[in-house]
Design a protein around this nucleic acid. Structure first.
Length: 259
DNA sequence: ATGCCGGGTACGACCCGA
């Protein structure tokens, strides 16, 4: 069982890469972010044609998340609870049954939050607070729970090639890092950090030669419940895909399970 | 250099992202 998260930066611009990647990496469940498409615009047919169920929560132009899966989901929930006025499409949850387990998988796109003096940062922090409440409610189920996506958080200085470039930024402010730790401290484990002490960047800007200079940051995470961590066998970042033609600025992160 | 690229949309400058 393989689960992946990938910020595609526009699903319609990434279809060739997505289909090639699905064929080669054969994930069972895929969490997508920044699809930048309405549910009607989402190009589901080519994905369904290679054996995936497609569930989307999109909006016009910006944001947008989706779940692709080999199994038909038992349940799909769209939106982060806690603010009925928040219409931004940033979270979708699916529940999947395997032979002996139930897996609850979330694809999330956490707000960027810059500039830090703006209401975008207040929105980021309130969204993180709501995410914490949501995660706590899910952890009470004691299921295999995977909270995956683009967190727009650089958790430690090790997660940036040049931390100096990220000071006074919504990705690294102490209140951002504190909110992220609060989430982790509910009892979630960062899958990549469970297997690696290397930097493991997941994003390189299109600009300023970031990729050739390896000027990356790690902002895409899969956070696991204890039940999920027990079953995890591998976790890895598909860094090479940043070098593909028409690459997203993010690369996929994958985890494998023994079930 | 808080926009150098690349996605989106109002199909053509402009908004947005990290």
């Amino acid at each position: 069982m393989r689960i992946a998260t990938w910020n595609v930066n526009g699903i319609r611009a990434r279809m060739d890469n997505l289909v090639t990647w699905l064929r080669h990496s054969t994930p069972d469940i895929v969490c997508l972010q920044e699809t930048k498409s309405t549910d009607e615009q989402f190009p589901r047919a080519p994905i369904e044609a290679i054996g995936y169920h497609v569930r989307t929560y999109g909006q016009k132009g910006f944001n947008g998340v989706a779940l692709l899966s080999r199994m038909n989901p038992d349940e799909i929930n769209c939106g982060l609870p806690g603010d009925v006025a928040d219409k931004q499409a940033r979270l979708i949850e699916g529940v999947y049954s395997t032979d002996k387990n139930v897996m609850r998988v979330v694809s999330l796109y956490l707000p960027n939050g810059n500039p830090v003096q703006s209401n975008k940062y207040t929105y980021k922090l309130s969204w993180m607070k709501r995410l914490c409440d949501f995660a706590a409610s899910r952890l009470r189920f004691e299921e295999l729970f995977i909270l995956a996506g683009d967190y727009n958080v650089i958790a430690t200085d090790m997660d940036a090639k040049n931390p100096i470039n990220w000071v006074d930024n919504a990705f690294t402010l102490s209140s951002t890092r504190a909110a992220f730790r609060e989430l982790i401290n509910l009892g979630l484990t960062d899958a990549i950090r469970a297997v690696s002490s290397d930097p493991e960047y997941t994003f390189w800007d299109y600009q300023a030669q970031a990729w050739p200079k390896n000027d990356g940051i790690r902002i895409d995470y899969l956070l696991l419940s204890p039940e999920a961590l027990d079953k995890m066998t591998h976790a890895f970042v598909q860094k090479k895909m940043r070098g593909w033609e028409r690459a997203s600025d993010h690369v996929p992160v994958c985890i494998d399970f023994s079930c």
